[in-house]
Design a protein around this nucleic acid. Sequence first.
RNA 1: GCAGGGGUACCCGAGUGGUCAAAGGGGCUGGGUUUAGGUCCCAGUGCGUAGUGCUUCGCAGGUUCGAAUCCUGCCCCCUGCACCA
Length: 971
Amino acid sequence: MPTASAGSLTLPAKLTGSEEMAYDAQELETRWQKAWDDSGVFEVESDSSKPKFYCLEMFPYPSGHMHMGHVRNYSIGDAMARFQRLMGKNVLYPMGYDSFGMPAENAAKKEGGHPHDVTHSNISSIRSDQERMGYSYDWRRFLATSDVDYYKWNQEMFLTLNERGLVERRMAPVNWCTDCDTVLANEQVKNNRCWRCGLEVVQRDMAQWFLKMTEYSDELLDELDNISFPENVKAMQRNWIGRSHGAHIDFPVVGSDSVIGAFTTRPDTIFGVTFVTLSPEHPLCEEICEGTQWEEGWSELRDECAKMSEFERINMLKEKKGVFLGRNAINPMNGEEVPIYAGNFVVASYGTGAVMAVPGHDQRDFDFAKAYDLEIRRVLTKGSGDDPNSPLTEAFEGYGHMVNSSKDGFDGLSGEDAMNAVIEALEDSGAGHGTVEYRLKDWLLSRQRFWGTPIPMIHCESCGIVPVPKDELPVELPLDVVFSEEQSGNPLASHRQFIDVACPVCGGNAKRETDTMDTFFDSSWYFMRFCDASNESQPFDRASVDYWMEGGVDLYIGGIEHAVMHLLYARFFTKFTRDAGMNSVGEPFGRLVCQGMLNAPAPYCEKCNSEYHIDNFGTDCPTCGSSLSSRNAKMSKSLGNTVSPEEMVSKFGADTVRLFILFGANPEAGMDWSDSALEANNRQISSIIDAVVQAITLDGSPSEMDEWLMAKLSRNQTSWTEAMSDVSLREGVMISHFEMLSDWSWYLRRGGCDPKTARHFLEGWIPMLAPATPHIAEEFWLKLDGDGLLASHILEPVQLTSGSDSAIAREAYIRDLITSGRNLRSLAERHSEKEITRAVIQTAAKWKTDMARDAIRLNLEGFDFKTQGQSHVQTLEIFQDESKRGDVFQTWQSITTGSKKKRGRIHSWSDGQKSLISGGLDEKAVIQENADFIAASLGVNTVEVYRVGQGEDVGGKARISFPLEPGIAFL
RNA sequence: GCAGGGGUACCCGAGUGGUCAAAGGGGCUGGGUUUAGGUCCCAGUGCGUAGUGCUUCGCAGGUUCGAAUCCUGCCCCCUGCACCA
C-alpha cells in the first residue's frame, strides 16, 4: 500500500461498528503534511500532453506571521489547486515572498542588524505557518525577491527595458514622502497620501528613473475587454488610464510668438470660447505677464496654490479663483481675441495645463465666467424648440446642434460629426489636430531606499549615464551596511565600495546609481519566474512560460488593494516581455478573484457611529459615554479584533479553519468571523468522520435505497464540479460537506445498509472532501484502502444509471408525502378530540393518473392546451360518465392550463415527477412498502393506503386526491 | 459629478423567466437526550387553513399565460475616481 509513508495510524485498519475514529487533528494533519512532502506529490513539470492549470495567490510580504487574511487567500487557492488536480489537470501552484521593502529596513534600523536577516527569519516563520495549513505548494519553486538569485534578473530585465527604449531618466515634479524618505509613483499616492504610511506627500523636482508604461496605454485599456477581472477592478483600471479623445488646439498669444496649446474633448464647442485659462504653474503665465501690472496678481495666486497640497486644492477650494494675465489669445477658428486667465481649477499635470474656456457648455467655465463677468455664449442647442439666443442659467454640457458658429459650414452639425468637422478644419489650417490624452503617467521607478534592487546604472564623469553590462550583473546589495535610527536616507549613498566604480565604457572614474527599484518591479514578473524558477541563465525560459501561462494564470487570487498598482504593472510587464520576444502571452492573468474582507466583532457606539478597540468591550463609549454594542468591522490591528490563525489551528486543526473560511462566504464576499460558526464547522467534521466510519463498517444487504444513493452521488458530483470550476467554493463545500452527509443520513434512515454501495459512495465522496479538508479526506482514503495518495488521485465521475431520475423522484415523493402529512397532522389535531393514532391515505383514482400521463405526453408533442384542450377532454372515455364531468373538467384544468393564480401541473412538475407518472408509479405500493417509515415520521401507529374507490372515503379525502398528492386523513 | 457593485424573510445570505413561500447558516420557539447547563438529535419559524388559498424579494409602473429574476423611472446604501478640460 503506497500510503505506508503516512506512518503510524490512529486507527486499526479494520474497524468494528462501535469503534470511533479518534480525531486528533494535530497528529493527523502533521502526519499527512509530512507524507505529502515526502512523496513530492505536488511537484510538477511542464507536460504538453496534459491540460494545465496555473493557480496563484498574490505572494505575501513576509511580515512576522501569517494572518487570517492570508489564510483566506491561500485556502481559496489551495482548494482550487486540489480540485483541479482531481479533475486531472497538471497544476502549477507555487509560493514565494515579496521580500524587499521598507518594513524590513525599518525593523533593522530599530533593532540593529541587517534587513537581510530580518527578512529571512520572517520568511521561515511564515512558511512554517503555511505548511501547517496543509497548502499544496510546489516548494521547489520557492523564491524570495530579495535574494540575489532573483533580483539579478530584475536588473537584467531593467537593462532589457532600457535597450527597448522604455527607461528614461528625467527631471520631474515627483511625489515625495518625508516619512519614507523616498519618492512614490502616482499609483502609490491615494488622496495625496502615501499608500504605505499615510503621510501627506509633497511635490519635489528631482531627476528620477521612469519606465515608459504610457507606451502601452491603449493596449492596457483595450485588453480589459477580453480578460476576466471583476468589473470594479476593470473600472478602476479604465479610470486610472483615463483615455479621452479630443483635440489639441493652438491659441497664439497676441503680441508674442508664444502659443497656448490646449486640450479639449469638445472641439464642437470651439466657437463658444470666450477666454483661455492656464494653470497658475503654467510656464507661459510668467512670460505673458512678466513686468506688467498683472504680474503681482498672478504670483499671488501661484503661491497660494503652491502652498496648498493637491488634496486641499480639490477639497477646500469650491470657489473658482483666477486672475487676468494682461493679454489676449486668438481663437484659431474665427480669429477672435479672447482674454487669457490663470485659474486655480486648472490642473497642471493633465493635458497641457491649459484650457479653452467655453462657459456656455462647461459648468466650471460657466462658474468662472459668472464670477469674473465674462461672456457666456451659446453654440449648441438641445433640440429644435431651443432658442439659440436665449440666455443660459447653467452650462449645457450635452451634445447638441451647432449654432452661432462664426464660420460657415458648421451650424446644424452635432455630436461626432460636429467634432470631426472642427478637427478637420483645424488640421487644414494647421492650428490643431485630433488627439488622445491619458491620465496614466509613466511609472516612476526609482526609490531612495536601501532594501530594494539596485538600479544597474553608472554615472560616468565623461560618458554620462552608462548601463552596467549584462555580464557584470548582479550589482549586489552590500551586507556590510550599518543601520541606525538616527540615520536617515539611503545608506548606499555613503557606502564607498559600492559607489566607486570604473566606467564600463571609458574606464574612468564613475559612480554607481544608489537609487533602488520600487518593489512593485519585483512583483511585476514573479509569476513568470515561477514557471521556471531555477533557471540560472535567464529570467525564465520562453517555452515554460508559454506552457504554463497560455491564456494567463488560470486563477489569480488576492486583495482588491492591488487593483491599480500591482495588476497594472504586471500587465505592462507581460506585454513588454512579449514584445521583447521572451514569451507570447500578453496578458498575465486569465481570471482574477479578489477575496472579500474578513470582519470580526468590535465594540460599536451607535451614537458616534464608530468602532473602538476590543479593550472597550464591557465599558461605555470613550467619546460620548453611552453604552456600547457590538458590530462586525474589518479585522485590524487598530481595533484589535484580529484572530490568530495559529491559535485556531492549534485548537481545532487546519481542516476546521479551512472549512469555516470556505463555507463562511464565497471568495469575493465579505465574511464575518464567528467563534460559534467555527465550532459548528468543527462539529460538522466530526459528523462526517462518524458517517465515514459507519459507512466503512456497514454490514447489511442491498435495497432499493442503493440506487437512490448512487443517483444522488452522481447528481451532487455534477453540481459540485460545476460550482468548484466556477470558484463558487461556498456552494461547492455545501454540497461536499453538507448535502452529501445529509444524503448519507437519509440513506441510513430509510434502511440502506449495503457495504458495497457504501464503498462506492465513499469512493465518490471522499475525493470531494479533499479540496476544503484535505487531511481528513486523506485519512479516510487510507481507511478505505484507496489507491495511492488521495492528493494525486483523479476523480472518475459516477455515471447516472437509467433509473436514477425515478429513484430520486420516488424518495422525493416520500419526503413530500411526509412533509404535507406533518402539516396536516397539526391541523387534524385541532379537529380531533381523541389522540391521533392512524392515517388513512387515498391515492388518486386511476382516471386521474391516466389523464396526467396523457397530458404529459401531449405536452411533449407540443399540444396546444388552450385552444384544443376543451375538445380533447370531451373525447375521453371517463368524460362519458355524466356524474363525473365536473370533476373531470376541473382535474384536466389543474393538470394542464391551471387557474389564474396557479400554473398547470404539466408546468410545475419536475422531470422526475413527470417520469414517475409516465412510468406508472404505483403510489399505493410505494406507500405500503414504506408504511412503517411513514407512520413513524408522521407520529402514528398505523398507515392504511388504498386507491380512491377501493375503500371507504375516510374524511371525504377522495375529492382532494391528485396524482402524487394523495388525500390523507388522520384518525 | 463620473464609473462599478448592491437593496431578498428576525439577522447573514443563495437565488437571472415557470420545479419559488423562496437554498444554507445564525437566532428564536417547541420536543427528545441530559442530574442540570452546554453539546447533540428532531420539528417549527409570512398569514390562513383537515389541504389545490392569500400576501411578500427597495418604491412605482411596464412586458409576459406567468416576474425576486426582463424593461423604464425613482429612492437608498457601499466602493473607486474626481474642478481630468
